[in-house]
């Protein structure tokens, strides 16, 4: 087939909602966009283990400790599913991870904010996982097969993440005034970073348009952000918590909530590496990889020795 035929065939599949599979012909830019997006997503899962992981040893009771362990473990699993999806595109996992460590690849900025109190664990589950699910549910129909299948599995597993977070905050909001204040404080700190998770406004988003045309993305950043706000405001009301935005109000005409402009200076600063925990997060991942080096080498050396013994 000629290049033009390949392209026509590819576009035809996209139009007919036929999934693109690993060995199919695809435009190079489609492949690169996917590698960038999926690996960024994978990195977010793995870096996302850190703020919550730091509360595992301090979880307030045994049930919460087990739930938190299971949840953070799921994030590792999700990172792994997603790295697997990037490998089907020819991207080597370790190379992809090195790109994260050198700062070439990004991850979700939300994880550069610190988890300061136990209520933050609830807020992360409710808001951060809630925002992530909003994105991920849309991605279950993404045009690239392995990515879509990974997302289906992730969405199934993540459904407990948001619920456990909300339940945990519910407990605080029905508890002592001290606990409720802790919950409100967590919401105050995580609300805006959660809204930033959907990325820049559509007008500013460089990759959006092409990604939508290729059906990698099915909704724009602003559409998803609006859905998230609309879904979350009533949930906050049930908790009895106040969303930290004076301009937040229901717009009858639009059928949506209006809300204030995001502080984009802060967003871009955190993306560029100047958030409260960027350095700590990357340092922890780099340390894990470096300190694991001799372990991975040892296992490979052992496998080689055994294979030689077998063939001898």
């Amino acid at each position: 087939m000629t290049q033009a035929e390949h392209e026509r065939h590819f576009n035809d599949k996209i139009a007919k909602e036929i999934k693109i599979e690993p060995n199919d012909w695809m435009p190079d830019e489609y492949r690169q966009t996917l590698i960038r997006q999926i690996s960024q997503h994978a990195h977010s899962e793995v870096v996302g283990m850190l703020p919550e992981g730091n509360w595992i040893t301090r979880a307030p009771n045994l049930r919460r400790k087990a739930v938190l362990l299971a949840k953070v473990q799921d994030e590792a699993g999700h990172g792994l599913y997603l790295y697997s999806a990037t490998e089907t595109l020819g991207a080597d996992r370790e190379q992809t991870i090195d790109d994260l460590h050198t700062g070439k690849a990004k991850y979700s900025s939300i994880f550069n904010y610190p988890a300061l109190t136990w209520a933050d664990i609830g807020a992360i589950g409710w808001l951060v996982d809630g925002a992530a699910i909003m994105n991920q549910v849309a991605l279950c129909r993404t045009s690239y097969g392995p990515y879509a299948r990974a997302m289906v599995k992730i969405c199934k597993e993540e459904s407990f993440h948001q619920r456990q977070g909300y339940e945990s905050l519910m407990k605080l909001c029905n508890g002592t005034p001290q606990q409720k204040a802790m919950a409100q404080d967590a919401l105050n700190r995580f609300w805006w970073p959660a809204l930033m998770m959907f990325g820049p406004n559509d007008a500013e988003s460089t990759h959006s348009e092409q990604s939508i045309a290729w059906k990698i993305k099915r909704f724009t950043n602003d559409e998803l952000r609006q859905s998230f706000v609309d879904a979350t405001v009533p949930q906050a009301e049930i908790l009895g918590l106040t969303i930290p935005d004076e301009n937040l109000k229901w717009n009858e005409e639009r059928g949506h909530y209006d809300f204030s402009e995001i502080n984009w200076d802060e967003f871009w600063q955190v993306v560029k590496g100047n958030g409260p925990c960027n350095k700590e997060r990357l340092a922890a991942r780099i340390k894990a990889k470096e300190e694991g080096l001799w372990v991975r080498e040892a296992a490979n050396a052992f496998a080689k020795k055994r294979a030689m013994k077998k063939s001898a």
Binding site: V46, M49, L50, G53, I56, L69, V72, Q73, A76, G77, G79, L80, Y83, A284, K287, A288, E291, G292, L293, V295, R296
Partner: peptide, 12 residues
């Protein structure tokens, strides 16, 4: 160890 394992598989 959670989040700091030598490789993701072993972390899990």
């Amino acid at each position: 160890w959670c989040g700091h394992g030598p490789i993701l598989e072993e972390d899990i």
